[in-house]
Design a protein around this nucleic acid. Sequence first.
DNA 1: GCCAACGTTGGC
DNA 2: GCCAACGTTGGC
Length: 141
Amino acid sequence: MRYWLLKQEPEEFSWHDLMREGIALWDGVRNYQARNNLNAMEAGDLAFFYHSVSDKQVMGVIRIAEAAFPDPTTDDARWVAVRVTPVVALNQPVKLEQIKAEPGLAQIALLRQSRLSVMPLTAEEFGLILALGNTPHPKLS
DNA sequence: GCCAACGTTGGC
DNA sequence: GCCAACGTTGGC
């Protein structure tokens, strides 16, 4: 079981869109490092859904429903997509500002590599963000 | 293989 | 709107 953070502009695809659809493709990634992270995902892994640019906050927890397969939005075999499903909305969305203020989160790629859209989190980092969002761990609920 | 120029992302 | 941080492209 690994933990991830997936970033998207809410104007493109939002947490609300995912809740409405129930299950969705995470596709269109065209960056090797992000692609490598998609390839490392296993069904059942948990991830946060982060709204970038206009919102800049973590909205909720999602689950990787299906591991990487060829991205249907391109014929280029280099790129992959996964399928994700919502698990739980955070009781309070966690702002980028709060993440920056938390010493235990200083190493996360969200802060250190702002352009990366798919990144791993440690179990500790995942837990800290859940705590900031006043949300119990989905495994325990 | 190097690097300058250019394009994109995302925070401010 | 600006700029930092990358990533990509193409000339050499």
